[in-house]
Every structure is written in structure tokens, then in C-alpha cells.
Write a protein that binds this DNA or RNA. Structure first.
Length: 709
DNA sequence: TTAGGGTTAG
């Protein structure tokens, strides 16, 4: 029996959803293996190669701690663990491998310093001093070294990593000063606050060189510093070093590392580590469950969240406010607003007060789910219970109003923020939300007014407010104004991002051919010249599909995942609206499908085939419909497939601000081509046709006699 | 906030 069952071999079939294969990486269009978030490691004395595989990471553990166990790589493949049952150790003659110390590192009680008052004055002087080394020399002339406790207290109060390092140098210069682990730990913490990963590693190396022991507090500080600097490779390297040097992590260090793996998206490793710690006798605490809950939320893994809830219940761990906040947010990310709501009610019923973070998460969830009633009820409760509000919560409420189209409520909130006694003054997020509200409500004048007010009041401009306003002006066909907003933004140092590029593409799609389009493409050229290049290729009859495909893939790989489909939609719209070669729209739709931008477009049940157009733009929807009809005609001609009794098309009802108009545009398209689809009366945005009606229409539309005529 | 881990906005 192999106890180190850490293999992540993809060939093992794993029954529980927690162990399902990881989702495809964000760079799925690319054939390279650039999927790891692990950054390059910096050189240290005890560097080991960073790896994303747990078996590699823990190999030293298996060598140092599990010497009685087989350690050859081939022997590390074990039957997959099953959840939620705890691993059972089938060989009682062998001791359980221990992966963490069950007792936390003890901390001596803080020793109260009798000379606190004069020290407070000195710590203030040192904190404010522009020249710390001189100030220290003045305060502690030769022969008057600070006591250990005084030095520790002063070091703790400096609030600047540079000064912490200088203070450490000063202590080092004193004869016989007992510079122990604690001093280094305090400086490491200060370096962590300053995001100084390089100095953290350097200082830890100095501890090793000077034979100052590294303890659990040292390691947990180093590991969280690495995390804060997004140097996950470094975090794992130092964690591994603990085992190699014979120091057992305690639960604080261990849960810090669980979070590192979680942030890397290595969920299987997290679960394995979690289970192994439990098997060592660990009773996980709220922090560990918070890490697990957040991880499953990020992955949209509802089963994982339920697993966390069940584990807590089984182990009798009561969630605290942080755990509730994490789980509420996680359920939102997993697309389960109902569970978020019940967790919130459970939290309140348990006597825990929701804080700003709880309410921010919940309001955001209700807004995204378009649960107006719940959102408004919660808002009322917030007011009547005087639950705490901060500017993030205000802004989230405003964004929720934008999602739900609650213009009046948003205006009230915004006015409330402008009251002079409010500390939550409107900032760029608040203005963006208001521009968004007016933009999606078709009120470009008001949106422009908000933007101008933002500029007048010196509120820092951000890319999102410009994007929302340009979008709104584009929809209103005020192309010149949209271009001016873009120019103002870039003049003020706004760097266009992918969303803004997508927005410019959508504006280009509604432009008149010629001057208007050229103006918008002039903006786009400054933001993403490659997109303008692709548009030129699409326009050029001579450019072949292979070239288009290569460039399309290159652009999509460079683009953020969430803009890829909008990019493709807009490109199709431009091709259709601007007189590009007629095959281009179909080519782009084909590429979009090829690269998985339109999952679930087609569905087939025995009695009905359907086309779900809800994530498509108007042009892309028409293209997809045409393609579908052609493919159905092929089926009729080839008689290879038995057609179902009915066919349906979904456009969505247009309640979402981004899908507005698809249902009505599609209706007119159906009328134009006289297709026999009828809108389902009780279901807005749903169209059906029977086989009886559709086949004659297909014949009339696509049969060679008609096409050649 | 006194040497260590987990939670808020397009």
C-alpha cells in the first residue's frame, strides 16, 4: 500500500467531481503549454526546480519522512482517494505519515515593557525620521544599546520596509546584541507588507548563513510574502525546504500553502494535501475551510462547495463570518444565488452580523442574477438594520442598479454619496456605474453629463467609464462624440484594454461605410493595430481562409478570455454590415465554433433540434441561422438523417442589457427571408417551426433550380 | 495594533 498517493496522472479515472480533470486553460486556442501561473524563480542557495506536480513537490517529503515506504516514481500511483470518506490506512503496522505538526508553534506571552511611554515618543521620532541610521546613533550612543524588548518594540513600529532593514543593520552593528529569529520574522513581515520578495529571500538566506533557526512563523511569513508577490514557485520552494530540513509545518503554515496551491488552480493537490493532513489527525479550522471554499468558488465547482459545507458539519466546525463571506461569494461564482441567499440567512440566524464584504458579495450576486426583489429587500434590510456600508458597497449597489436598470434608485444612492457628510464620495467606479445606467437606458446626454462632471470634479478617469460611454454613444450613432471621448481618454493617459477594443469594434459595426468607419478604426489602430490588420484582411478578396485563421487565432490568444466571443461577434457584424466578401461572416463563425467561442449553439433531441443564439450578436445570429438552414437542407437532400418533428431557435427575451434587440432583429430577419418560424406566444425570444412547414421552405430556398435562377 | 494563515466592486 502506497501512502503517498499524490500522483496527478491524467490516465487515472477519478470518480468524484473534486478530482475531475481541470478545466481547459485560458489559452486554449494555443497549442503551447503556457498554462502555468508559476513565475520564474529567483536564485537562492537552496533552490530546487519549481514544478506544478505535487509528486515532484513532495518527493523530498517522501524521501525524508516516508523512508519505510516505496519511493520509486512508478510506485507512487495509487488508487484514487474517494471523497468524502477519509482515507483509511490499511497497514496498521506502519505508522501514519505525518504531514503537519498537530500543535501550533507556541508563542511566549508579550512581555510588558515598563518604559513604554518614553519608548512611544522614540518610536514616533524614528518613524518620522528621514535619516534613520543617524537618529538611531543619536538615540543609542556607544555603550547605550537598547534592550532586546525595546529593540523589538521599536522595530515593530517603523512601518516601512526600508527602515526595518536599516534597523536590522543597526542591531547587527551592536556588540553582542542577541539577534534571534523573532527579529528576522518582524523584518520579514515588514518586507512582505512592502511586496519586497527579493529582500525576503535574501534575508532568509542570511538567516540560513548566520545559523539563525527558521521556525514556522518564519516560513509562514515567507510563504505569504511570496503569495502576495505572486511568486507561487517561491512559496512552494520554501515549503518544501521545511520538510527537507526536518521542520514540520503547523496548521498555520500548512493552510498558507493550501492557499498557494488553490491560487495556482491545483485543486487536486489541495484536496490531497487536505486529506493527508486530516489523516495525520488534523482537525481543520475555519481558515482552512475558507481556503477550500474560495478555491471551489473560483472554479465554479458547486459540488466542491457542498463538500466543504458537509465537512464542516461533520467535523462540527462552526463557520465564522469570514467563512460565510467566502462561501457566499463562492456560491455566487458557482452560479448558485439561491444557496448564497440561504447561507446568508443562516449566517444572520446564527447571530453573526453581516459586514460590508458580506453585503457586497450578496448584492453583486443578486444583481448578476437579476433578482430585483431580493436585491431591493436586502437593501431595505441594510438600511433598517443599519448594517455597515462603505464606498465599495455603495459602488456595488450602483452596479447592481445598472444590472437591473434601476435608474431612480441609482440616482438616489448617487445623491446620497454626494452629501457633504458622507465619507463615501463618488469615485471613478461610481461615475462608471452611472454612465452605465444611462448608457443601457438609452440616455446618452445624461451619460455624457456624468462623464463631464467626472472630468470637472477631478475624479480620476478610468478605462471602464470611457468604454461604457463610447458604447452608449455608439449605440446612439453619435460616432464623432464617441471618437472624441476616446481621444480625451488617451490624452489623459488611459491605456485602452481589450474591453475597450471590443467596444470600438462594436461601434465600427454600426458605422456608415467610409468616413465614420475610418475614424473609429483610427482609434482602434492606437489600441490594437492587429485587429485593424485583420479587418483589412477580411475586406481583401484575395486573402485566403488559412491566413485569416492564423491571424484570428493569434489575436484571440492575445486577448482576454472574456472578450474573445464579443470580438468574434463584432467582426462578423462588421463583415455583414460593411460589404466585405460575403463568405467572411461564415468563415468567422466557423472559426468561433472551432475555437469553442459558441458552446451549446446547437442541440439535438430526438423530437426537436434547436439553435441557441443567446450569446450571439445580430449579425452572428443571422449567419448562424443561415448556416443551420443550409445544413438542414443538406440533411434533407442526403436523407442520411431523420429530421425531428420540430425545430426551435432561442434569442433570449432581451431583458439583459447586452442582448437587447436580438429578438426583434431576428423577428424581422425571419420575416425578410419568409422562414416559417413563429414566435412562441408564452415564451418571448423563442421561435419554432414544424418539419412540415420547414422542409418546403428549405426546398424553395436552397434547391438547385432556385439557387441557379 | 505589536513575530505567522482565510473574506468586498466592472
Amino acid at each position: 500500500m502506497v501512502l503517498l498517493c499524490a500522483s496527478t496522472s491524467p490516465t487515472i479515472s477519478i470518480p468524484h467531481p473534486l478530482f475531475s480533470p481541470l478545466k481547459p486553460p485560458a489559452t486554449f486556442l494555443c497549442h503551447s503549454s503556457k498554462t502555468s501561473a508559476v513565475t520564474a524563480s529567483s536564485p537562492t542557495a537552496d533552490q530546487t526546480p519549481s514544478s506544478s506536480s505535487l509528486s515532484d513537490q513532495l518527493l523530498p517529503l517522501s524521501l525524508t519522512l516516508l523512508t519505510s515506504q516505496p519511493t520509486s516514481p512508478s510506485a507512487t500511483v495509487a488508487p484514487p482517494p474517494r471523497l468524502p470518506a477519509k482515507p483509511t490506512w490499511t497497514n496498521p503496522s506502519k505508522p501514519r505519515p505525518t504531514v503537519l505538526a498537530l500543535r501550533r508553534q507556541p508563542r511566549p506571552p508579550f512581555s510588558h515593557n515598563p518604559s513604554l511611554r518614553p519608548l512611544t515618543a522614540l518610536s514616533r521620532t524614528l518613524r518620522l525620521s528621514p535619516d534613520l541610521p543617524s537618529a538611531l546613533s543619536a538615540a543609542f550612543p556607544p555603550g547605550h544599546s537598547p534592550s532586546r524588548d525595546d529593540a523589538l518594540l521599536l522595530l515593530n513600529s517603523l512601518r516601512s520596509w526600508q527602515k526595518s532593514l536599516q534597523f536590522l543593520d543597526f542591531l547587527r552593528s551592536l556588540p553582542d546584541f542577541p539577534l534571534d529569529t523573532i527579529f528576522y520574522n518582524v523584518v520579514l513581515k515588514s518586507l512582505r507588507a512592502g511586496h519586497q520578495w527579493h529582500h525576503v529571500e535574501r534575508l532568509a538566506g542570511e538567516m540560513i548563513d548566520a545559523s539563525v533557526p527558521l521556525d514556522n512563523i518564519t516560513y509562514s511569513t515567507i510563504i505569504t510574502a511570496a503569495k502576495r508577490c505572486r511568486r507561487f514557485d517561491g512559496a512552494l520552494r520554501w515549503f518544501e525546504r521545511m520538510y527537507r530540513t526536518g521542520l514540520m509545518p503547523d496548521e498555520v503554515t500548512y493552510s498558507a500553502v493550501l492557499d498557494v496551491y488553490a491560487r495556482l488552480g491545483h485543486r487536486e493537490e489541495v484536496v490531497t494535501l487536505y486529506e493527508r493532513a486530516c489523516a495525520s489527525g488534523w482537525r481543520p479550522d475555519a481558515v482552512a475551510f475558507s481556503v477550500l471554499g474560495k478555491m471551489f468558488g473560483e472554479a465554479g465547482d458547486y459540488d466542491g462547495i457542498r463538500y466543504v459545507l458537509k465537512e464542516m458539519k461533520d467535523l462540527g466546525v462552526k463557520p465564522n463570518a469570514v467563512v460565510y463571506n467566502t462561501l457566499i461569494q463562492a456560491t455566487g461564482k458557482a452560479g448558485k444565488p439561491g444557496l448564497a441567499r440561504s447561507l446568508f440567512e443562516e449566517m444572520v440566524a446564527a447571530g453573526l452580523s453581516p459586514n460590508e464584504k458580506t453585503l457586497t458579495s450578496l448584492i453583486k450576486i443578486y444583481g448578476k442574477a437579476r433578482w430585483s426583489r431580493d436585491a431591493l429587500e436586502l437593501w431595505e434590510r441594510m438600511k433598517s438594520n443599519r448594517w455597515p456600508m462603505d464606498f465599495i458597497l455603495y459602488n456595488t449597489l450602483l452596479s447592481m442598479c445598472a444590472d437591473l436598470g434601476l435608474e431612480e434608485e441609482a440616482e438616489k444612492l448617487f445623491e446620497d454619496m454626494r452629501r457633504p457628510d458622507r465619507y463615501a464620495r463618488p469615485d471613478s467606479w461610481s461615475y462608471t456605474a452611472m454612465i452605465n445606467i444611462y448608457g443601457s437606458g438609452g440616455k446618452p446626454d445624461r451619460a455624457v453629463k456624468m462623464f463631464e462632471e467626472m472630468l470637472e470634479k477631478g475624479v480620476e478617469l478610468n478605462v471602464m467609464s470611457c468604454t461604457c460611454l463610447i458604447q452608449c454613444l455608439g449605440k446612439a450613432r453619435r460616432i464623432g462624440d464617441a471618437v472624441r471621448v476616446f481621444e480625451t481618454a488617451t490624452e489623459r493617459g488611459i491605456r485602452p484594454d481589450d474591453r475597450l477594443c471590443g467596444c470600438l469594434l462594436s461601434v465600427a459595426a454600426v458605422c456608415e461605410e467610409g468616413g465614420e468607419t475610418d475614424m473609429v478604426l483610427g482609434c482602434l489602430k492606437k489600441a490594437n493595430n492587429r485587429l485593424v490588420g485583420l479587418l483589412k484582411m477580411l475586406r481583401d478578396e484575395q486573402v485566403g481562409f488559412g491566413e485569416i485563421k492564423d491571424e484570428f487565432r493569434g489575436i484571440m490568444n492575445e486577448a482576454a478570455v472574456e472578450v474573445r466571443r464579443p470580438f468574434c461577434n463584432c467582426l462578423i457584424d462588421i463583415c455583414r454590415n460593411q460589404g466585405h466578401p460575403s463568405r467572411r461572416a461564415n468563415e468567422l463563425l466557423h472559426l468561433g465554433n472551432l475555437y469553442g467561442l459558441y458552446p451549446g449553439l446547437h442541440a439535438r433531441k430526438s423530437e426537436e433540434w434547436s439553435l441557441d443564439l443567446r450569446s450571439l450578436s445580430v449579425g452572428a445570429a443571422k449567419t448562424a441561422f443561415e448556416e443551420w438552414m443550409k445544413s438542414l437542407w443538406d440533411s434533407v437532400v442526403e436523407e442520411e438523417e431523420v429530421l425531428p418533428f420540430s425545430f426551435s431557435v432561442y434569442t433570449g427575451s432581451g431583458t439583459h442589457k447586452f442582448s437587447q434587440g436580438l429578438a426583434s432583429s431576428f423577428t424581422s430577419h425571419l420575416n425578410q427571408v419568409a422562414a416559417p418560424f413563429r414566435q412562441v406566444e408564452e415564451k418571448c425570444g423563442s421561435f419554432v417551426a414544424s418539419k412540415e412547414d420547414l422542409v418546403p421552405w428549405l426546398r424553395a430556398t436552397f434547391s438547385p433550380a432556385v439557387v441557379n435562377a
